[in-house]
């Protein structure tokens, strides 16, 4: 009896020691990678850290804006608003298509195996092309206008949401789908009565997350496609008008914070 309990005790100690060893090895590997990356890119981490105070003082001396700059604020607001709208519209449009593809692509709700793989493939392709690449590709065919920005955000969002939605559906609905199928329910009934009510809050939450993400991306996409707040940023940046650049940056940060606060509020309400 006592020998049995002592072997158990010993094995537990071993497990803890093994975990410590694994943690140490992982830490060493990460440290090694950081040093290696620095060597390859000839970037000196110490120098990088030391230059931070100088960079901050440059920021403060060049980017604090004056009253004259504030006169341009309405323009900034107008383009910021346009950017936010494009993000919201592209995300919500993408979410409708993503929901259809997710229903076709989920193991639980697929209609047939061939369509399931097609849906997954389409989503995977559109997800794995980064939003910047989408913007550059689309600029070639559509030129610099709002539609290009909208489409770039749409494709990247669509791909991501299909994946997030499939995971949500798989997680939330398997039990209730089984129950409804057993009552003799039709496919549309199972979707509307079990899948959607069960996964709606989580689907909504992912959509809000993508709206937040897209407001950040929209700035970058606008820079590439010459639209929205990104375009304005690019314009003043090239004119070396740092006061305007800082005003624009600050507005974007505030807008993102407000949107985040709103979506957190909505999230809390629906869950």
């Amino acid at each position: 009896m006592s020998s049995k309990s002592s072997t158990q005790h010993l094995s537990r100690v071993n497990i803890i020691r093994k975990k410590h060893i694994r943690l140490t090895i992982a830490a060493l590997i990460i440290l090694g990678l950081i040093i290696l990356a620095g060597e390859i890119t000839s970037y000196d981490h110490i120098d990088g850290l030391l230059s931070i105070p100088a960079a901050i003082s440059w920021l403060f001396s060049n980017m604090l804006f004056s009253a004259g700059t504030l006169a341009n604020f309405p323009t900034v607001l107008r383009l910021l608003w346009e950017t936010i709208l494009i993000s919201i519209v592209s995300t919500t449009t993408a979410s409708v298509f993503a929901l259809i593809f997710a229903l076709l692509g989920s193991q639980l709700t697929q209609v047939n195996t061939f369509l399931m793989y097609v849906a997954k493939l389409v989503a995977s392709v559109s997800r794995n092309i980064p939003v910047v690449a989408w913007a550059l590709i689309l600029v070639l065919s559509f030129g610099t206008n709002s539609a290009t920005g909208f489409l770039a955000l749409f494709f990247a969002t669509f791909g991501f949401l299909v994946r997030a939605y499939i995971e949500t559906i798989d997680e939330a609905s398997s039990d209730s789908i089984e129950a409804l199928r057993a009552t003799g329910a039709t496919y549309p009934q199972m979707i509307f009565k079990a899948v959607l009510p069960g996964s709606m809050p989580q689907l909504f939450s992912w959509t809000l997350f993508m709206i937040e993400t897209n407001i950040r991306s929209a700035t970058l996409v606008g820079l590439l496609t010459g639209t929205g707040i990104g375009y304005l940023f690019d314009l003043y940046y090239k004119q070396l008008n740092y006061e305007m650049v800082s005003l624009i940056t600050l507005s974007i940060v505030v807008a993102v914070l407000i949107i985040e606060a709103i979506s957190n509020r909505i999230r809390r309400e629906i869950i």
Partner: peptide, 17 residues
């Protein structure tokens, strides 16, 4: 045929929300 056969489950399988 399934309308003639009810089913109940270990994990109840209700739509929780």
């Amino acid at each position: 045929m399934r309308t003639d056969i009810g089913m109940i489950f270990q994990h109840y399988n209700l739509v929780d929300r």
